[in-house]
Design a protein around this nucleic acid. Structure first.
Lengths: 246, 246
DNA sequence: TCCCTATCTTTACATCGTAAAGATCGAATA
DNA sequence: TATTCGATCTTTACGATGTAAAGATAGGGA
């Protein structure tokens, strides 16, 4: 009996920031008395805001250990709770990833909106959004991966659905402004759809290839010191020399 | 003792095609005599070509159960061997996925080359490659996922490196032909790099968004019955109405 | 005061990847 | 021909993970 799952912690001590009471239970088995009574503001009994704490813990784990390290149990360890605690708040791993992706989409949307606001010239305005797009992905590759590369997302969750929808709406709106036409919410012409798909595919594809390191071959063949941002800009502004946009 | 891992099979009977001798060992424990001596062409002792058989089994599992179902043990079950057999041939899961991705890249390259050959007019030629690109991904979404969305690939493996390199070379070559200029193997101008990045990003991004179902919103707002292929074509040929290719 | 409910912990189990040791067979060697 | 050797495959084992189910623990009304 009790052959598996008796160690629980014994690691995760790397880069510990501030939170997480840290119960120091590395003895061996059976810790019946969690704490006598609620005093001294330590080990917050029922915690009060575990859900938020878990999401923040998940973000830390993601940034520290990457996508592969983002497990339910790792998040629980980071938050200092039992490994089954996240399940109660998110149902399963898909639930946690979906809520985390929603957080990511909100950050993502805010970053792009902010970048658009600070632009002045028309060209700057047009480039601000894709630049912010790629910049966010480079700054938060794990989060971008959760948002765009995970098959384990549940878009029926309202928070995720809304946040992702807002992202798409921002894109469609930007395209509409650039084409100087109103893009309605329900029907699209083929050319409008093509324009949206082109912009999104272009920036999303660039980002994915960049994060996957597949643009390295190109970047290192370009003039010395050409950055990814410069390549992005060139890709978006260089003259098209054939009938197709290539 | 013998608490874990004594069941081995008992499933995976869905959609069994033809291969795999099927040893019918669903009794319980200890099957010492695998078979008396090599006779009757059944249960091929050392199998002879397990490596190839495992790769084919992996492809079947991938198509049947998707990326999530593609595990070392599932592949071993599909091939009718012990769960540790794949390790001997591929080292670890990364090894298997990398070799499988190499198979995919070869199929992928062949599909595009074939499509380009059968094109006649210049416009057809220009569109043949991206269309074949997307068509392959739609026909083999699991394989495309392995090739382009997996972080667990080892590009230091020669077979994978070569197959992926060939894919990139084909793209660069096609862009060069379209721009009517020679694209050298080592150095690139910024505009050349931008053109390659644009073409690749455009098609790769479109494919990823399509496979992830993120283009559904657009497709269902387009005129009745517009297919993804039609949208792709429009995206590649519709006139650009602003300074940027959007 | 007592019970009810949400919250969190324990315990348990199937599955997975991987390591290590044992079995098996083809082939080279004597 | 008999024996040894090395490659191939199987067994066994272990830690980790997701998830289900039952037990503990308060906080908040009745």
């Amino acid at each position: 009996m009790a052959k598996t799952d008796t160690k629980t912690d014994t690691k995760g001590e790397t880069a510990r920031t501030s939170r997480a009471p840290r119960r120091t239970t590395s003895t061996v088995a059976s810790r019946p008395a969690r704490r006598a009574t609620g005093a001294k503001t330590e080990t917050p009994y029922h915690h009060g805001a575990l859900r938020e704490a878990l999401l923040q813990a998940a973000e830390r784990v993601l940034e520290r250990d990457g996508l592969a390290g983002l497990t339910l149990r790792a998040v629980a360890r980071e938050a200092g709770v039992s490994h089954a605690a996240p399940t109660h708040h998110f149902g399963d791993l898909t639930g946690l990833l979906s809520e985390l992706a929603a957080v990511g989409f909100r950050q993502f949307n805010a970053a792009m909106a902010s970048a658009c606001d600070t632009a002045t010239t028309p060209l700057e305005r047009a480039l601000a959004r894709p630049k912010a797009y790629v910049a966010y992905a480079q700054a938060h590759p794990g989060m971008y991966g959760i948002m765009f590369r995970t098959e384990r997302l549940d878009y029926s969750r309202p928070s995720l659905h809304e946040a992702a929808e807002a992202s798409f709406a921002g894109l469609a709106n930007a395209i509409g402004m650039m084409r100087q036409e109103q893009i309605s919410g329900d029907a699209l012409t083929l050319n409008q759809g093509a324009a949206i798909a082109r912009a999104w595919s272009l920036v999303h594809g660039f980002t994915m290839l960049l994060l996957d390191g597949r643009l390295e071959d190109i970047l290192e063949r370009l003039p010395e010191g050409t950055t990814a941002e410069r390549l992005l800009e060139a890709m978006l502004t260089a003259p098209v020399t054939s009938k197709l946009p290539v």
